[in-house]
Amino acid sequence: MNPNFLDFEQPIAELDAKIEELRHASHGQAFNIDEEVGKLREKLKVKTAEIFRNLTPWQISQLSRHPARPYTLDYINGMCEEFHELAGDRMFADDAAIVGGLGRINGRSVMIIGHQKGRDTKSKVKRNFGMPRPEGYRKALRLMKMAEQFSLPLFTFIDTAGAWPGINAEERGQSEAIARNLMEMSELRVPIICTVTGEGGSGGALAIGVGDRTIMLQYSTYSVITPEGCASILFKSADKAKDAAEFMGLTAPRLMENGLIDKIVREPLGGAHRNPSSMATRLKAVLMNQLDELEAMPIDDLLKKRYARLRGYGAYAE
């Protein structure tokens, strides 16, 4: 098994490997393999479409945290003409699990903030697996306030299993850091567009997720707890994560049905990781489009709408 592919992606991995092998074998040879490779490519396309046609919520959960999935810095690279990363919360430290900075997209000045995971062991540890500590949320807040000060629209990219549940995080006020962001984002005087690019894990995700629009990539998830966490608490076994995922309603289409998000951005065939640059291009187009809509509104109207939107969340009887 190829560890860079999920179990249900193995047929894709095998075809990928065959194509590579064939190309490698034919290198410098006289015979023409174009036709054969073309056939295999077509087969790969059909197979991928077939696999991705009926994904279960659990499979989507796995895709949302695929080891090859693009992360915030990949999107920033794919979208921005310029990006200047800014570090530190000015109080305690710089948390590498959240990145942020000044950017320029299609000539427009923006502030960008997002969770950041690592790829190899070293960077995973540096990024704390994308699980921020309070200083990460406080850095985010500092940049949000800066966005407000310089009238820069704010884009956030959400991709975390959750806020870090550690002793040091508790000592430095993890709850307060998250809560303050929720409160401040509700009235930040610039347009805010939040995109769930991978895992939208609970309060740790929402702490950079309050705004005027919530967008989800097709195979991202957004939930109150991870399927594993839900399973171990309610199903009394972490092995029941698959079942939990079914009921949690964490996929983009389910959340759209329930009116909890505003837009779904389709991913390239086989998921964002199969073609990160195309994913970035698509997302960029959607973000610019949404930003045009929001910027057309006077800021006070925008804030009223934002409040009404936040205030409207809920399903209850009376």
């Binding site: 809560a179 929720l182 409160m183 401040e184 984002m185 509700s186 009235e187 609970s202 309060g203 929402l206 997720g209 309050v210 957004y222 939930s223 109150v224 707890i225 839900c230 608490i233 309610l234 949690m248 309603g249 964490l250 959340l255 329930n258 909890l260 409040y307 936040l310 205030r311 969340y313 809920g314 399903a315």
Partner: peptide, 22 residues
């Protein structure tokens, strides 16, 4: 947050915090 209401529960965090801001 109440797990059985999924993201509806999570969004109550944003909703209540917005009212406190006011």
């Amino acid at each position: 947050a109440r797990m059985q209401e999924g993201l509806f529960s999570l969004m109550q965090m944003a909703k209540t915090s917005a009212t406190i801001r006011r």
